[in-house]
Amino acid sequence: MIELQSVSGPEIKRVIPELARLRIRVFRDFPYLYEGSAEYEANYLQTYLDCPRSVIVLARDGDRIVGASSALPIEDEMEEIKTPFVQAGFDLSEVFYLAESVLLPEYRGQGLGVKFFEAREHHAHQLGGFRHATFCAVERPLDHPLKPADHVPLDGFWTKRGYHKREDLHTTLSWPDLGESEGSLKKMTFWLREIQK
Rank of each mutant, 00 (worst) to 15 (best):
E118M: 14
A137Y: 02
Y40A: 02
D177K: 00
A99M: 07
L154V: 13
I195Y: 11
Q126M: 14
V95I: 09
D143C: 03
V7S: 01
E194S: 14
F157H: 05
W158D: 01
V26P: 02
V26I: 12
D91R: 14
A59H: 00
M78V: 14
E79R: 14
I56A: 07
A71M: 04
D91K: 11
R120L: 07
W191S: 00
L178Y: 05
R53I: 04
L127Y: 07
R161H: 05
Q126V: 15
V86Q: 15
F190S: 01
R64F: 10
A20W: 02
V86A: 10
L127I: 15
D29F: 05
A68W: 00
P17N: 05
E11K: 05
G36S: 08
H132R: 15
Y48A: 06
F117S: 05
G129P: 04
H132V: 11
Y48G: 06
V152G: 09
R14S: 15
W191C: 00
G67H: 00
M188T: 09
E180R: 01
L49N: 13
P31Q: 07
G36N: 04
A68H: 00
I16R: 03
E180W: 01
I81K: 09
D63I: 15
F30I: 09
G162T: 02
G67T: 00
A88Y: 07
P105N: 11
L104E: 08
I2L: 05
F96I: 04
P52Y: 07
G179F: 00
D76Q: 14
R193G: 02
P73L: 05
T159W: 13
E79D: 15
R28V: 01
P73G: 02
V138G: 06
T172P: 06
N43Y: 09
R131F: 09
S8R: 10
G183Y: 05
S174W: 12
S8C: 13
G9F: 07
W191V: 00
H123I: 08
R28T: 03
H151Q: 14
G89D: 08
K147L: 13
Q87P: 02
D63A: 14
E80I: 14
P10C: 09
I65F: 01
E121W: 12
